[in-house]
Design a protein around this nucleic acid. Structure first.
Length: 403
DNA sequence: TCTGGGGTCCTAGGACCC
DNA sequence: TCTGGGGTCCTAGGACCC
């Protein structure tokens, strides 16, 4: 009947991850108001230390606003490689307790510890052990939620941050849901929140009183999901593997621009970055979306699906440039970005023409050049090598280095 | 001095095919 | 001799998450 381990799902959430890593690596930052983010005109906070949060600073806040809130604020530029390295070590630790670990982002993961009792003890003991191992081996704290499904575990992990451990026992689920503010429900953002509050809903428990057709009418398919959650139901499983579905690279300019040459130089750098990521993941892309953001902050996308999947930076760049020109620049833009979607593994057969025509030969050539560029960038740094097209502009590789 | 960058999933309309 | 109806692909945009 009932599963032997009712509370078998864990959600592990690193506390203020990027900021904590900076404080770990630089003791002078400990106890200080630290944010990680670009200290540029348009930078935003990627992570804020708990000391900084006391000043009302939070992630996604513009850096200039954060500065206004806290005079002694220390701004540290992000070191993504370092965060990825530590994230990998966290995931390795989790993997020692259960094979069912699902990383959901660089600082978050779900685990299913069903059947792991004999080796590691019951879920709460596992959670405690994970916390102490991460602290001992890495010097970082995390918060863990333990519950009967992913939704409850996720919300639980957020309840007692930082360094929290929260259980939701089955008999307490209903009370927990009754008191859970609707805005705390994963998937409920500002838009859904507006709709729900117009219906008089402030807590998840109130959703139970609404007929399903009404919810679906207001929220679409998400109405079904929300009704399930309001009853504490979530049957989604912890799945360790998932394929990457898209890859992208985008840049916000320091100042809005309508300079096609400048924009094109960014596109070339972005195409190289996207191509390099595709290669690392052993995938090719058939669809290339170009994203722009106009001065009024409106986002626009135009995309093109190619007759065959590509991986080389030149093909990506040319597709992006065509999309840029096809729409025409109607005014200055603040952001440009390239994505690559509709991905296929390189092992999937590529649609080949009857004859290896010029284009295919050319594509092969550019892929080889991309590999060489990647290798040199990997060894000597990405500022050591770039396409000639990037140099005669004020583009990303053309900027003068600070002394 | 408004609002990053990297993703996921959903929706809706049009084209096209059988 | 007005308007079928699914299924799939493509495109654009929106909401949301960390």
């Amino acid at each position: 009947m009932a599963s032997p381990t009712l509370l078998h799902i864990l959600h592990i959430d690193m506390d203020a991850f990027f900021a904590s890593v900076e404080q770990l690596d630089n003791p002078a930052l400990r106890g200080q108001c630290v944010i990680v983010g670009a200290d540029s005109r348009r930078g935003v906070v990627a992570a804020a230390s708990y000391e900084a949060r006391r000043f009302g600073i939070h992630s996604a806040m513009p850096v200039y606003q954060a500065k206004k809130k806290c005079a002694q604020l220390i701004i540290v530029p992000p070191r993504r490689r370092r965060y990825a390295e530590l994230s990998g070590r966290v995931m390795d630790i989790l993997g020692k307790y259960s094979p069912l670990v699902e990383p959901v982002s660089i600082d978050e993961a779900y685990m299913d510890v069903e059947g792991c009792d004999r080796l590691h003890g019951p879920p709460v003991i596992i959670a405690k052990s994970i916390k102490s191992t991460i602290l001992r081996e890495l010097g970082l704290t995390c918060s863990i939620g333990v519950a009967s499904n992913k939704f409850l575990a996720k919300v639980a992990s957020d309840m007692n941050k930082p360094d929290g451990l929260t259980l939701i026992e089955p008999e307490k689920v209903n009370a927990f849901i009754d008191n859970l503010p609707i805005a705390k429900v994963p998937g409920v953002g500002p838009q859904a929140c507006r709709i729900l509050s117009a219906m008089g809903i402030s807590f998840l428990g109130q959703v139970r009183r609404f007929p399903l057709p009404l919810l679906v009418g207001k929220l679409g398919r998400f109405g079904n999901r929300l009704a399930d959650l309001s009853n504490g139901h979530d049957d989604s499983v912890v799945s360790p593997c998932h394929d990457v579905k898209s890859v992208s690279n985008e840049t916000t300019f320091e100042a809005d621009t309508a300079d096609r040459t400048l924009i094109a130089s960014y596109l070339l750098a972005q195409a190289q970055s996207v191509a390099s990521t595709l290669h690392r993941n052993d995938v090719r892309a058939r669809t290339i979306p170009l994203k722009t953001r106009t001065s009024d902050f409106q986002r626009h996308t135009r995309s093109r699906t190619l007759p065959e999947a590509v991986q080389d930076s030149t093909a990506i760049y040319e597709a992006a440039l065509e999309l840029l020109d096809q729409g025409g620049l109607k005014g200055p833009i603040r952001l440009v970005g390239i994505a690559a979607g509709n991905l296929q593994t390189v092992r999937q057969p590529v649609q080949c023409g009857l004859f290896p025509d010029e284009r295919e030969a050319r594509q092969g050539k550019w892929e080889k050049i991309d590999r060489v560029v990647d290798a040199i960038a990997g060894r000597f740094g990405s500022d050591q090598i770039a396409r000639a097209g990037l140099h005669h502009t004020d583009g990303p590789f053309g900027r003068k280095k600070k002394k």
